[in-house]
């Protein structure tokens, strides 16, 4: 069969596919009324992997979709232009063409490439024509404790350099001290600095202490206009977990119910197995619905997940368990 020459994506990549979240005035009554029962959330999360299962062609298709949701990421001190170009090449062609062909699939790409500011230009150039957006982590990532003025300037620099998405980190201290208006103002400022670029608010949930705080911070960031809420930098002791995810996506659902606005979700850190990805996707499908299985509303922040998915896909095609070196590295 003829394959399309240009890569297809699960959804158009342009930043303005759906109405962006304009935000709301800070609603403190809402924030104070937020409840999150940890043990109940943990129990629900614990049963999730046992409740949903996709097999055979469905599993292959879901894993291919998972690839289109990945923010292929490198956030290391030793990143170089060469390393980033290699990552971008993998983002353009994440799965071996013979495997795609065997599954009757055209080419696919990852959801985005995610780098530090210094690598944005390199990545933008490397991805030219691919439609793959570049995301930049920003605002003094990962701790977010550099001077506020510089954090805002960092966003502006990255946008100027061509980043279509900015992953900001919130000031955890505002959550831990209950200074919700400070958090709101900070997020508002970051959002404004992003201009046309979509903004993902990294809550660093592993440092917020409680799921109640996770829920409250989610609402405040959404009220302040976050396009996405994201769990972690990947640098905290605990990163994305199912209980944290359930808490955040329930907040997204409540926000949509109240405003009609859809906010995206990005779990990051710790999702490295194909099976984990499928569990997350089932969670999104069941709790939020199919729109959250597309890259405009859902991303995985992951670096090693792709490798496991590639091996599973080869197993699907050949019936044999695969080896890592049979797939091109990032």
């Amino acid at each position: 069969m003829a394959t399309e020459p240009t890569p297809i994506r699960a959804a158009p990549a342009a930043p303005d596919d759906h109405a962006r979240n304009p935000g709301l005035a800070l609603d403190m009554d809402w924030i104070r009324g937020v409840q999150a029962n940890t043990s109940a959330i943990e129990r629900r999360a614990a049963t999730l992997p046992g409740r949903r299962s996709v097999k055979k062609a469905w599993q292959a298709a879901w894993l291919l979709r998972a690839i289109t949701l990945i923010d292929l990421t490198t956030l290391a001190g030793d990143d170089t232009p060469g390393r980033v170009r290699r990552l971008c090449a993998k983002a353009r062609q994440p799965v071996r063409p013979d495997l795609l062909e065997a599954m009757g699939m055209g080419p696919i790409t990852t959801g985005a490439v995610c780098v530090y500011h210094e690598m944005v230009e390199t990545a933008v150039r490397a991805l030219e024509g691919s439609g793959i957006p570049v995301a930049a982590v920003s605002t003094g990532f990962p701790a977010g404790l550099s001077p506020f003025r510089l954090r805002v300037a960092e966003i502006e620099e990255s946008v100027k350099a061509g980043a279509a998405e900015i992953d900001i980190v919130i000031s955890r201290r505002h959550v831990l001290t209950g200074d919700w208006s400070a958090l709101y103002d900070e997020m508002r400022t970051f959002r404004a600095a992003c201009g046309p670029a979509h903004v993902k608010a990294i809550l660093a949930t592993g440092e917020l202490g409680t799921l109640r705080n996770v829920a409250r911070a989610s609402f405040v960031c959404m009220m302040a206009g976050a396009d996405f809420i994201k769990t972690s930098t990947g640098k905290e002791g605990v990163n994305a977990t199912l209980p944290v995810s359930l808490t955040m996506i329930r907040a997204i659902r409540a926000y949509e119910a109240a405003t009609g606005v859809r906010v995206g979700y990005k779990p990051a850190g710790g999702i490295s197995k194909a099976k984990d990805a499928l569990t997350y996707m089932a969670l999104m499908k069941d709790e939020l619905g199919d729109p959250w299985l597309r890259p405009d509303l859902f991303r995985f922040g992951a670096s090693s997940l792709l490798g496991d998915i590639e091996r599973q896909l080869e197993h699907h095609v050949t019936g044999r368990y695969s080896a890592g070196y049979r797939h091109g590295m990032a």
Partner: peptide
């Protein structure tokens, strides 16, 4: 159902 179709529909399939 083919992989490409399921990739678009994102349905659950049988898992007996």
């Amino acid at each position: 159902m083919g992989v490409a179709e399921i990739f678009e529909s994102m349905e659950y399939g049988p898992a007996p």
